[in-house]
Design a protein around this nucleic acid. Structure first.
Lengths: 203, 203
DNA sequence: AGAGTAAACTTAACACCGTTAAGTTAGTGA
DNA sequence: TCACTAACTTAACGGTGTTAAGTTTACTCT
């Protein structure tokens, strides 16, 4: 009676194939420049087949982003495990966040730079177990470590974490959207942002 | 021979009428939810007429944003004229920037949160006389005032200005896109971001 | 005044888009 | 073998930005 399972595996396979095709196209051309018909062409199925596996185009994007941000969580997790000065570790985490965003600009844009439909964000995006939220949790944890080690003054950790997020998101998104801006230097601005934010919290 | 001038005035009038209609719709529904046909309906002309006055939809948006950011520049200009502690003045300017972005989320999104086509940004967006750049110039000026008054240590002003921009842009854009996120408090996070950034530069 | 012309505007169409209803095919279970 | 179901496709709907061609309008010049 392994038939059903084989079927289920096959079904999952095509699902993944769609996801991979969509991911590649989204990354290369950006969400709104990729049509369902193009994705379908790539996997050599009819466009409507995609709708048997995904509710609509935005769910496709949502799944692609989930995968990508799973990788970010893994990366941050590795950094946070390392021993040493918690402030330095926090900084490394912030830098890794920016770097990840710049490596995956289309995914980053889709996840953090699009206006979420009312109610959509609250229920799906901001659940504690979503990759985005897991990534954010590393911030509060990193800050908590700094406090425990006496490296930072007493503060509202949640507020400080949101402040840090705003800062690193700012430089990440600006570098993505305004690549032609006369930056003093991409690396310089990234480091300056991280250093300024952390110094501001230490003060 | 005032005929030609009257004609020119009439032509300008319709141009402005298109701009106003587009602006209202963009602000209410967002750029990508407004079609050329809807704009045309509003002014009771055929859709193609718009193309006699604007190259395409994106130029329409560009002009609308230019108008809006002219208002931001005016507001910042007023703040920078005021006497008093330059650091406080700088903070007030940063807060005004964020507030302006939140008051005009669709315009803000269009100007600072969309990926600029290669070469487009460099030539149009980042010219010294563009409203966006004028707004940015207030940052460097505000920082310069702080330095002159001895309120801040020696630093690369351009780098510091870009850092500040990244920070305030970060909180502005996140509040626009992730309005459902469990923020500690919108006002709190805004002030925390501004205070942290400035404190970080002072250190 | 009437012919010619240029500007202003519209109609119709093209090539796309996301999505759905209806239809076809293939393979399972009785 | 026959009914049923799951997988997939065809055809279509109502929309998009944009353009080529055609029409109306109004003014200039003889």
């Amino acid at each position: 009676m392994g038939v059903k399972e084989r079927k289920a595996r096959q079904k999952k396979f095509l699902r993944q194939e769609i996801l991979d095709a969509a991911s590649e196209l989204f990354v290369r051309d950006g969400y709104e420049n990729v049509s369902m018909r193009r994705i379908a062409d790539k996997i050599e199925y009819s466009p409507t087949t995609i709708y048997l596996y995904f509710k609509d185009k935005s769910e496709l994007l949502e799944q692609v982003c989930k995968e990508t941000f799973g990788r970010l969580v893994q990366r941050l997790s590795k950094i946070m495990e390392q021993p040493g000065d918690p402030v330095e570790r926090l900084k490394r985490g912030l830098l890794a966040y920016v770097q990840f965003g710049l490596e995956n600009p289309h995914h980053y844009r889709a996840t953090f730079m699009m206006v979420l439909p009312e109610g959509f964000g609250g229920k799906k995006m901001h659940q504690d177990d979503s990759p985005g939220m897991q990534a954010f949790a590393f911030l509060t944890r990193g800050l908590g470590d700094c406090l425990k080690a006496g490296k930072m003054p007493a503060m509202n950790v949640e507020l400080a974490a949101q402040t840090l997020w705003a800062g690193v998101h700012g430089i990440t998104s600006l570098l993505i959207t305004h690549h032609d801006f006369p930056w003093v230097g991409r690396e310089k601005v990234i480091h300056s942002t991280v250093d300024t934010l952390v110094a501001g919290l230490e003060a």
